[in-house]
Design a protein around this nucleic acid. Structure first.
Lengths: 330, 330
DNA sequence: GCAGACTTGGAAACCGCTTTCCGGGGAGGT
DNA sequence: ACCTCCCCGGAAAGCGGTTTCCAAGTCTGC
């Protein structure tokens, strides 16, 4: 493995000069020497050892992103947004997937801390368990105490900059929109009760119905993914409209209905949440609450990198998008 | 930022002892000192500086994965497979997305080389341009000369271990299956001609038709993504069966037909390639050629890490899966 | 009870690079 | 012509670990 010293020797200059030429420095190097160094580096195929650079500089150019599941379009969009932003900042990205295990999340923060990444982004819903949240907070605080920066997409529960989708509010608006179409009997495919995102959306929806004087919906808990939606849909009793707390669950529900010959929206209306990009190819087109996922990912990175001292919590509003999967009741 | 030296001082031991306790070593440390060190580390919240470790040990525990687009389920599945395998090996993952720019791919290899990652995985089709492929080869060779390991999912064009889907063969089998249903007039949504994967699938399909004595299909080039399929579908003239060279393009084509009121499969049959997991939620269910994407990603990592001296090229067969999107012709 | 084989703790060299601090030489001012 | 000041090159001190090499015990076996 060729080192800077090899290059310096080959070019007949000092280590310092070689370093200044090859790895941006504030100081100038004369054209002649500069050329010699560059040629030597090229001939030898020199690549700076970033580990050494990071050590010497005391700061690297890597950030970490922790998501639950990369194959879920929701996280893929968020991660993609953050990664594009990272690229424009000249940063590399380490991605970790937790598969919804909060312990994994904590472990990743520790690992990324050890890697001395510039920032870590925690993407995804928090869990209701205060003990585990507390431990994650501690781990993050320790990382930040050492100069690390962090941000979160989800709920403001970690004491770091946060991009917080307005889940309750979005779900409430959706409820009002659906009620406006004449629906009165609802079911909520509510996901796991301990996931704050799921719980908030369910609560926002339910509360709005209550304010409208409508009966409480049937609430069905289950996994927060496509199969969870598929399974939960089987348990719906006599609702005219089903709200799945995220789009992938709604897609699962649509599949379940299709398999059973239940027509959407003729027999039952279905709505989701997130507006993942793949929705455009589903039939019927899904009513949902749009979240600007890519922007949120990018914004989270900005917040993490920002110099603000105060903790910034940015609410992101959702926009109700009515599509074919819901119908107006006679 | 607390260092090993802080821990050693606090525990009243030498640096060497602290290192041996905290970061696995072959050597033993007495129980008493061990306990003191562990307690000190805990109190101080010590996290090893991986950059320093990597430098000292001469080897890190990070691998790099380069994909075209994380939001494409094809790449997401491949990356997820590789990442799971990495996790079981105790490796961290740096992910780079090129958005189909081969220059970016080369740049990533250089960057990952500089990071001294243990292995780099190049996931995705090669391009036909021998110049750019040559430069990528050179970059990889240089990395490997320095002790790096590499593998590729795609075509065996880089001189590294490769997981190579049998694109020609899979497409040929698909062609025969479709012909067996009575189709004779085909169109191929062929993607970009310079992408080897796209070209191979198109060629395999076309050749099989020729062998069967059927007329050559209409070949429509365009982007390799969903919108590319959507656009290409508009240009199909009078085929009874359309083969999109990957699933996301096929999904785009389905959308295009739906918008125009063309029924699939009654009016036209459609087939894709890859069997991405999201297909199960599309209507009509798409006929395709199944590739074990997650396994391929995991396998690529194994190959890269493997100790084999010889370059291993592993063919992966595709399996034709007939679903509702194609019909038997009268 | 003692030589020799193991253990275990510590000092120090080293990993590859950055950056401070010096020193020498050329340019500019008077 | 002389003195500053500035610019540029190099020596060397870290950055935070790992690991080799010693030295001092601790165990064996006879």
């Amino acid at each position: 493995m060729v080192t800077l010293e090899d290059v310096a020797r080959q070019a007949g200059v000092s280590l310092a000069t070689a370093s200044r030429v090859l790895n941006g420095s504030t100081r100038q190097v004369g054209a002649a020497l500069r050329a010699r160094v560059e040629q030597a580096a090229d001939e030898l195929g020199y690549r700076a050892n970033i580990a050494a650079q990071t050590l010497a500089r005391g700061a690297g150019n890597v950030i970490g992103i922790v998501v639950h599941d990369l194959t879920d379009p929701y996280f893929a969009a968020l991660a993609d947004g953050a990664m594009r932003a990272a690229t424009t900042e000249g940063l590399l990205v380490m991605v970790g997937t937790t598969h919804r295990d909060p312990e994994q999340e904590i472990a990743y923060v520790a690992t990324l801390h050890a890697q001395r990444v510039r920032a870590v982004l925690l993407v995804g819903s928090r869990v209701a368990d205060p003990a585990v949240t507390g431990r994650l907070r501690d781990e993050l605080a320790r990382y930040q105490a050492g100069g690390g920066r962090a941000a979160c997409v989800g709920q403001d529960l970690l004491g770091v900059d946060t991009v917080a989708p307005a889940n309750r509010q979005g779900a409430a608006e959706l409820a009002r929109a659906l009620a406006g179409l004449g629906h009165t009997r609802f079911a909520v495919l509510a996901g796991p009760p301990h996931l704050v995102t799921a719980a908030d959306r369910c609560a926002g929806f339910t509360e709005a119905l209550e304010e409208l004087g409508l009966p409480a919906p049937q609430v069905i808990n289950g996994p927060f993914d496509r199969d969870g939606g598929h399974a939960a849909a089987q348990q719906v009793r006599d609702a005219t409209c089903v709200f799945a707390v995220n789009d992938v669950m709604a897609v699962g529900a649509l599949a379940a209905y299709r398999e059973r010959g239940v027509r959407v929206p003729e027999d039952v209306s279905v709505a989701g949440f997130d507006d993942i990009v793949t929705l455009r190819d589903h039939v019927p087109a899904l009513t949902t609450v749009r979240l600007p996922l890519k922007d949120m990912g990018a914004r989270a990175l900005e917040l993490a990198l920002g110099e603000e001292d105060a903790i910034v919590v940015e609410q992101v509003a959702g926009e109700v998008v009515l599509r074919e999967s819901v119908r107006r009741l006679a």
